[in-house]
Design a binder for these strands. Structure first.
Lengths: 130, 130
DNA sequence: GCTTGACCTAGAGCATACTCTAAGTCTTAA
DNA sequence: TTAAGACTTAGAGTATGCTCTAGGTCAAGC
């Protein structure tokens, strides 16, 4: 309970540069510094980093994530906004899943096509619209 | 069968700038130009744009997409490389789907949490690690 | 005491993928 | 014939998200 920036970088796979950058952008407003000015990350900070990753991976930009964090800091008056944001994000993820499934189908078709082609040594004229 | 760049922009949702940029980057090497020097997109070109979108949306950069197209142009000697690329891409999509499901779970948890919070008018102290 | 190594800040630099501008051509319709 | 509108090229500019550098502090071990 109390990690250096290097330890957090190792744990999360983010670079120390990225972690400092996130802090500078206001995404990590809860990090403490010790008397020497070194950042001390708590387990809660690791939780925030996980949430940041979740929101980023589902299509929110850092700006949008900062908005959420600002709402969080503002307190109970922004509960509805935060709920709406997560609901919006859920819709996005559902769309992404549907998209991804379509892309998977296309890729599977290509794998079939090219598996045959490799066997036969040549690719038969293909309509690219398929 | 024979579209202007503006028509393709409308059909695909890409801007005319982006279409020209893709061509400049070598992603659309099959586009013809008419006697006036205007691009004439075929249905096959639309098919290529769909494939480009599929590969881009599943995490391939334009450079990687160009690599595939170069292989395609090179012909049957690159069938194996192209098959391998699609197989690699399939693995990526599977990973993305799993990731997305994890993120969905987290978001659903947050929606539950915030739905309660909105009802009660306050957010109970939450472990961010949840 | 001195070196090493991890940390610090401020700010510059970079990769990707657009996005736009300037200056010009061509077609079409009033 | 002239003005509008869609197209052309070359190249500059922008947004996002890092990524790195310079110059410096500080603690631990030789």
């Amino acid at each position: 309970m109390g990690y250096t920036i290097g330890q957090v970088a190792e744990k999360t796979g983010l670079s120390v540069h990225t972690l400092r950058y996130y802090e500078k952008e206001g995404l990590l407003p809860f990090i403490k510094k010790n008397s020497a000015g070194l950042r001390v990350f708590s387990d809660s900070d690791l939780g925030w980093l996980e949430l940041i990753e979740c929101l980023k991976a589902t299509g929110l930009h850092l700006k949008g994530i900062k908005q959420y964090i600002d709402w969080y800091i503002e307190g109970d008056s922004t509960l509805q906004q935060r709920l709406d944001m997560f609901k919006q994000q859920k819709i996005r993820v559902e769309q992404q899943m549907a998209e991804l499934q379509k892309h998977m189908n296309k890729i599977n078709y290509k794998i079939e096509l090219y598996t045959k082609a490799v066997k036969e040594g040549t690719l038969h004229p293909e309509k690219e619209t398929a």
